[in-house]
Design a protein around this nucleic acid. Structure first.
Lengths: 220, 220
DNA sequence: CTTGACAACCTTACATCGTAAGTCTACTCT
DNA sequence: AGAGTAGACTTACGATGTAAGGTTGTCAAG
């Protein structure tokens, strides 16, 4: 008998982007090629081009998908709470998809989810009484901090305490023991202490900025 | 007569790295290939491998070279001045070499200039009386902000006012006029106003963090 | 002066990449 | 039944990183 027509799920831009994100999450962005992505979808590389114009647009779409995972600031509870919560959500999304932050430097055309996100943040600040100029200040300060933190977190070559110790040893073994005394001190007495987790630094800096913004808003 | 032996300047790791940085400054990091870099140095691609182990190590070296351009915090004038000045210097270096910030996500092994820089910053804070823990807080907050700001600046698809207007129009033309009202408002009434320069936002956020750190240091 | 080791450069070759161009096939709409 | 089309596939090309091995110029030891 003739084989039943293949029950293959049809491709779609949506499915391509989601697979690409999953692929990058697992193997890193460098290992994402059109051919391998095709393989993962049971399809030849060139078929992908029916759904994305080229690889650059694929990457744009992936970044926008990550942005769509970030909670929009909620309206009810005051701007500080709203800003803190969306900052935490943004960090989580960028931590789930570590490759995303490195892509941003080269992506110039923001997608709809990205724009919607920005719009919601600015709107939240404006509704709380921020002037346009203050909203721009706040927006820049907060986003810079969030992205920068995510960038540092993504580039940290260790996750667990054991890895941390290993990496620290490897680095310091390359140089005389007293070459970087303060860095060594901070590493030994802080970073290598049990319970250390760089991620905990996030909230300190975040609150610094939020408190500063509150003061600045009341002044100006 | 026999042509004199070619007066070619010999290659060196130094020269390779400097050329690579210059090349990336001009054409973007994506256009930097071993062959083209070889061409720029009057040499075949494979000759570069006598001076750098592979392309990844080349990129590491380039990032470290950028770090070496950042002024170390100076000792005399109080930690706030020192931190502000090195922050400004860091931003300038990252602006001169826009590709550098995008590389950081993927570079895991810091070079000597990078380590020396970190050591000097921590040392400056410690000498100013910061506890180890507070120094770690301050360090994380400041660097996150600096890198994040540089990342946003590098990914901004416009430099001049004319470009800004062009890009804004292009983006908003893709969507209904009222799709992103707050973003539109901020763009029209702030970003597109004469004299706007995103770079000016840097100092606002920086002072926010520095003032916050001062307060936090006095409290704890 | 010869020799031989070694560093620095070059040549060739290969797998992999993004993607242009063209083809095939199975629906959908008349 | 026939035409059109969307979405898959095939083939092919130039560019990339780099492994393997060949060539040459310099310099120290014999």
């Amino acid at each position: 008998m003739a084989p039943p027509t293949k029950p293959r799920i049809p491709l779609s831009r949506e499915r391509v982007l989601r697979s690409a994100v999953a692929f990058a999450d697992q193997g890193g962005i460098a290992s994402l090629s059109m051919r391998k992505l095709g393989d993962a979808l049971g399809v030849e590389a060139m078929s992908l081009y029916n759904h994305v114009a080229n690889k650059s647009e694929l990457l744009d779409g992936m970044v926008d998908l990550v942005f769509s995972e970030i909670d929009l600031p909620l309206g009810g509870a005051g701007w500080k709470t709203a800003m803190r919560q969306r900052a935490v959500s943004a960090r989580q999304a960028l931590l789930r998809h570590r490759w995303a932050i490195g892509l941003m430097e080269s992506r110039a055309s923001p997608g709809p989810a990205t724009l919607r996100h920005h719009d919601a943040v600015i709107g939240s600040l404006r509704h709380a009484g921020f002037s346009i100029e203050m909203a721009a200040h706040a927006y820049s300060a907060l986003d810079s901090y969030i992205y920068g933190f995510a960038l540092q977190e993504a580039s940290l070559p260790f996750d667990t305490a054991a890895e941390t110790a290993e990496v620290a040893e490897m680095i310091f073994n390359q140089f005389p023991a007293d070459e970087y005394p303060h860095l060594t001190e901070l590493t030994v007495e802080h970073v290598l202490q049990p319970g250390y987790d760089y991620g905990n630094e996030f909230e300190f800096g975040l609150d610094l900025i939020l408190d500063g913004l509150e003061r600045a808003r009341n002044t100006t």
